[in-house]
């Protein structure tokens, strides 16, 4: 299982630092790995960012399926996915509530000038995160690479709590983007299409 290749499969087109962060390896190691993968025709680099080739996608699917089979993890990951999918619409509701507010029937961008409202949404994010932790732990218990999501989600929430408002739903390192990648990873790991 090549963690750098798989990280790229789950995050899409990305620069080196994002690939390294998602894979949980140093920038130097990620770069060296990516260069080897490029030599094998599995990844490409365009306009300063790395992306998967069709061959890379197929190779990752093969490796991911082999990893799942050798861990005998299909049932456990399937059950964690079901639990994830219960949390997913609620997380998307929270992201939407962070970005938009409806007052007097008018929906407009949340201007973040109401600290009481922002605090409430942030607290609800924390509450959902608390319920997401056992799902991540269950996944990591079967496939340790899933442990990286726990760290990245926790870090994004920590940055938001420290005042970086864009780290919940509005940046490429936000809680939502990490969650979106976890969603993708679950689909890839189980070989299911996105619906």
């Amino acid at each position: 299982m090549n963690v750098v290749l798989h990280a790229l499969r789950c995050i899409g087109f990305a620069d080196l630092s994002r690939v390294a962060d998602a894979a949980g390896v140093s920038g130097a190691r990620a770069e060296s790995e990516l260069i080897d993968l490029a030599v094998d025709g599995l990844v490409t680099r365009e306009m300063g960012a790395w992306g998967l080739t069709e061959a890379g996608r197929a190779e990752d699917a093969r490796q991911t399926a082999a990893e799942l089979d050798s861990a005998d993890g299909r049932a456990a990951v399937g059950s964690a996915y079901e639990r994830f999918m219960v949390l997913n619409p609620e997380l998307l509701d929270l992201c939407s509530a962070w970005q938009l507010r409806t007052i007097d029937g008018v929906t407009a961008a949340n201007d973040h000038r109401d600290p009481t409202y922002d605090r409430k949404v942030l607290d609800l994010f924390g509450e959902l995160d608390r319920r997401a932790q056992p799902v991540c732990a269950e996944l990591a218990g079967t496939l340790p690479r899933f442990g990286r999501y726990r760290e990245r989600l926790g870090a994004a929430l920590g940055r938001a709590r420290a005042g970086a408002l864009e780290e919940l739903a509005d940046s490429m390192t936000s809680y939502h983007v990490v969650w979106f990648q976890l969603h993708e990873d679950l689909l890839v790991t189980l070989g299911r299409p996105r619906t």
Binding site: C10, I11, G12, F13, A49, G51, L52, P89, L92, D93, C95, S96, M172, H176, V177, F180, Q181, H183, E184, R194, T195
Partner: peptide, 25 residues
């Protein structure tokens, strides 16, 4: 959309999806 659409969304001036709702990725 999947994470593989993120760079396309960043490059686009507008986005249309045929599924998903107001609270979708």
């Amino acid at each position: 959309t999947s994470p593989h659409d993120l760079h396309g969304m960043a490059a686009a001036t507008g986005i249309v999806t045929s599924r998903g709702g107001l609270a979708s990725h």
